[in-house]
Simulated assay, not measured.
Amino acid sequence: MAYKPSICTMSLGRCYAGHSLPEKLDMAMKYGFSGIELFYEDLLDLAKKMPGGATPENHISSAHLIKGYCDDRNLEIICLQPFMHYEGLVDRNLHNRRIEEMRLWFKMAHVLGTDLIMLPSSNLPPDQITKDMDCIIQDMVEIAEMGLQESPVIRFAYEALCWGTRVETWEASWDIVCKVNRPNFGICLDTFNIAGRIYADPTMSTGRNPDAGRTLSQSLDRLVQSVPADRIFLLQVADGERLAQRLLQGHEFYDPEQPPRMSWSRNARLFYGEPHYGGYLPIREILQVLISRVGFKGWLSLEVFNRRLADTDRSVPEEMGKRASQSWNSLKRDLHLNTNSLSYTSKLLHLLNSSNDSQHIIRTHM
């Protein structure tokens, strides 16, 4: 498929701020987006409003409604996200409950017409997540095998959040992907989370780690050498705002229950190409590596969280849709995107859905 723009539904205004999902989808259609990442919270909001509340049956009914909304607007649902706090749970009874929840997510994904579920690394307190990486890997193998039994196959995109408890870098998440070694288990790369851990630190007066540029360059060189393009199942694009003050106690974004990078992410992500709002991360450099050197082709998904999204102002979805469209145009121009080029995606899906076993296709390990 060609390079096409997708946007997270949460990027167009949070549902609890009074902006309905159809209203947000209207903005995605109006501003030329081809697809959406469906945020589970938007689906849950619909289910809660149905008689009986957020039952499994109402989750499925909500998925049918959302599929209809998207079909009416010619929007493809490229993934359902995020399935939070799954891997390495110390409480194995909770792990078993999460497995049952995943079975419901499979049903919702099939109804929504997507084959992809996004898994962010957990940021639960350290006493709730094991240090045993073998346990974390086995947990991922368990759901990957479950996904392989689905028809069509369900894929998983594993993302390192830059404030993750055990996994906070793309290198750590890629190592797990390699060791899981299943064709339906790949990596999600997010420009904010890559730069937000390797390059940036909102608690520093400079907003940057020491020797940030060299450290990032070395990390990107490792990425080129390690990660094949067809193992990148999802590429999310966002910048971050340079804060005027360090994000420490006393800052308006400070939350004692959140790591600083998480509070920064929730309040101060920006679309690509917004230096006028304070954007300062080297997003263009990261994307040039992923597109020109790694050879990624496919969806470029804009995933932005920002304090503006919590406003009940009725202009929020329109404003964010317009900003997202301007960002996509900047991406096309700056990266010289060929929107007619084909990608590996259809070949990979054919391999997954025609295989009768769990043939492993990862050949590159760190």
Rank of each mutant, 00 (worst) to 15 (best):
residue 38 L to V: 01
residue 212 A to N: 14
residue 95 H to V: 08
residue 362 I to G: 12
residue 122 S to T: 15
residue 26 D to Q: 06
residue 183 P to F: 03
residue 11 S to T: 05
residue 64 H to R: 02
residue 78 I to P: 11
residue 287 L to Q: 00
residue 161 L to W: 08
residue 5 P to S: 06
residue 180 V to S: 09
residue 183 P to W: 06
residue 340 N to V: 12
residue 159 E to I: 04
residue 161 L to C: 10
residue 108 M to C: 11
residue 114 T to L: 02
residue 264 W to E: 06
residue 6 S to A: 15
residue 127 D to A: 14
residue 323 R to H: 14
residue 14 R to A: 09
residue 154 I to M: 15
residue 261 R to Y: 04
residue 45 D to A: 15
residue 176 I to S: 08
residue 128 Q to R: 15
residue 234 L to C: 02
residue 44 L to N: 10
residue 320 M to Y: 08
residue 127 D to I: 11
residue 71 D to C: 07
residue 148 L to I: 13
residue 56 P to Q: 05
residue 119 L to Q: 00
residue 124 L to V: 00
residue 127 D to F: 14
residue 194 I to L: 14
residue 81 Q to P: 05
residue 90 V to H: 13
residue 99 I to Y: 01
residue 253 F to D: 05
residue 351 L to W: 12
residue 14 R to E: 08
residue 143 I to L: 14
residue 146 M to E: 10
residue 259 P to D: 01
residue 65 L to N: 00
residue 313 D to H: 14
residue 340 N to R: 14
residue 31 Y to S: 06
residue 148 L to D: 06
residue 155 R to Y: 03
residue 208 R to V: 14
residue 260 P to F: 01
residue 219 S to E: 15
residue 77 I to W: 00
residue 359 Q to S: 15
residue 60 I to S: 03
residue 148 L to V: 12
residue 244 A to W: 02
residue 2 A to Y: 09
residue 192 F to E: 13
residue 335 L to Y: 10
residue 273 G to P: 03
residue 5 P to M: 00
residue 278 G to A: 08
residue 45 D to V: 11
residue 269 R to F: 06
residue 347 K to N: 15
residue 68 G to V: 03
residue 257 E to S: 06
residue 230 D to A: 09
residue 250 G to R: 13
residue 198 I to H: 12
residue 169 T to G: 07
residue 224 V to M: 06
residue 187 I to Q: 05
residue 339 T to I: 15
residue 21 L to K: 05
residue 353 N to Q: 02
residue 303 E to G: 10
residue 47 A to I: 04
residue 157 A to I: 00
residue 145 E to I: 12
residue 173 S to G: 07
residue 66 I to S: 00
residue 350 H to E: 11
residue 228 P to N: 03
residue 17 A to M: 01
residue 121 S to C: 09
residue 45 D to G: 11
residue 100 E to C: 10
residue 255 D to G: 02
residue 254 Y to F: 13
residue 62 S to Q: 02
residue 168 E to F: 10
residue 98 R to F: 02
residue 185 F to N: 03
residue 288 Q to W: 04
residue 164 G to H: 05
residue 70 C to D: 08
residue 92 R to Y: 03
residue 59 H to P: 00
residue 182 R to L: 12
residue 132 D to P: 04
residue 128 Q to T: 09
residue 173 S to A: 07
residue 14 R to P: 00
residue 7 I to E: 06
